[in-house]
Nucleic acid binder design. Structure first.
Lengths: 222, 222
DNA sequence: CGCCTCCTCCATGAATCCATGGAATACTGT
DNA sequence: ACAGTATTCCATGGATTCATGGAGGAGGCG
């Protein structure tokens, strides 16, 4: 069977994509990049990594074709190579959540108790159309700027406690953040509830909103 | 930031799925399993692997939750854990084909020259409905038995040369095999063309047929 | 040109992965 | 219980990966 070598090479090339996904730190960087382009230093800070460590992992991702780089002066901006990569990352999470029992446990540990109500994307649209709810984006400012749900108000989770009065008191609040693995919206709903506000959480987050074809305001990914 | 540990653990758990995809041999096994359940010995033979090597990789896949095992007497049958895993494998291939330039080159080397005509799934259905074409499944017998396109005729590629007369001469032939990375249908179309038959190839293969929600004959995956 | 910022390259030791044989286990049939 | 088959467990050496420091570009600015 002379094609044994060619076949092995083909699968080895495919495995480069898999290898890139085989490290928790890289997945964390990928999750951040799914929200929008970032520089190396920003990514390192957001993921609590050393600069060289972050750079090394980003280059691994780049070699696997999952991210691209653009130079702006001295800074290098990394971005997801395309929405197919975001879809891949989403599918990894889907499979892991469904098949790896420890993922469910780890997710509950990270996200906290299951004490917040969540609604789906269609329900969000319905409540907004009815004028019943305001949509609150609690991600960091730059991520909101890179793209968000149309009509959403941006109050990063760090500033939420001090800016409560900016949210109309007579409306229900629907908070969202990055995605299913993001803790911000959980924290936001708890904080709002503690202040007597009626708040629910969007199931999943902005990544899934975008992947499911819903409209996005602000610059889109290339 | 006290949740740093929990977050790291969560991503590390997710990375177990990625790690499982980070080896060409395992991807090859996954590709075979996407066609239907198989025993360890069958998989080892199909992928030209040592028995212990195949067993070790299959257990890695199992630990990552991508496959399940069922015991039948002394033999252990491995199967994909679900269609979400097949979708993940498909998405890996999509991204790799689009983003890793070497994958395109390796695929061409493996699949051979681009000398065969291919048609899409809808076009296949149209030609069959018109009575113009017969559908030919050239995968090994057990894979056909595990599931196939309704109405397809099974002639494994190894036996095709000796069973040409079984195919009606007045019809066009649409050959398919496992998926986009499977060489059988390419070879089949070349062989049929060399014998003066009018033959085209289904784009992609059975995996994509099933994932896109088209009907399947024979036992389906759990 | 010097100097600063941002990032990449290089080297290193610890840890992990990989393929592979030989031994051990699980189950079947007699 | 015994022999036979299918699979897993175990040990091993070689290769790869990982995090992290320090040196080395690349580009902007005075």
């Amino acid at each position: 069977m002379p094609d044994g070598k060619a076949k092995g090479e083909l699968f080895a090339e495919l495995a480069r994509v898999g290898k890139a996904l085989g490290n928790g730190t890289r997945l964390e960087l990928l999750d951040l990049l799914a929200q929008g382009p970032r520089s190396v230093a920003e990514l390192a800070a957001a993921a609590h990594l050393g600069l060289t460590t972050a750079s090394a992992h980003l280059q691994t991702l780049k070699r696997a074709g999952l991210v691209t780089t653009t130079r702006y002066g001295t800074t290098v901006e990394y971005a997801l190579a395309g929405d197919d990569v975001a879809a891949l990352w989403h599918q990894v999470r889907e499979v892991a959540a469904a098949r790896v029992t420890d993922v469910g446990r780890a997710a509950r540990t990270y996200l906290g108790p299951d004490d917040t109500e969540e609604i789906g994307r269609e329900e969000l649209l319905r409540r907004v159309a009815d004028g019943r709810a305001v949509v609150l984006d609690v991600r960091p400012g730059p991520e909101f700027a890179a793209g968000h749900i149309p009509g959403a108000v941006s109050i990063p989770i760090d500033e939420l406690a001090g800016r409560l009065e900016e949210i109309p008191a007579d409306q229900e609040i629907v908070a969202y953040c990055r995605g299913a693995l993001c803790v911000f919206s959980h924290d936001a709903v708890r904080l709002l509830a503690a202040h007597g506000r009626s708040a629910v959480r969007l199931r999943d987050g902005f990544l899934e909103w975008r992947l499911s074809g819903h409209p996005v305001a602000g610059p889109a990914l290339p």
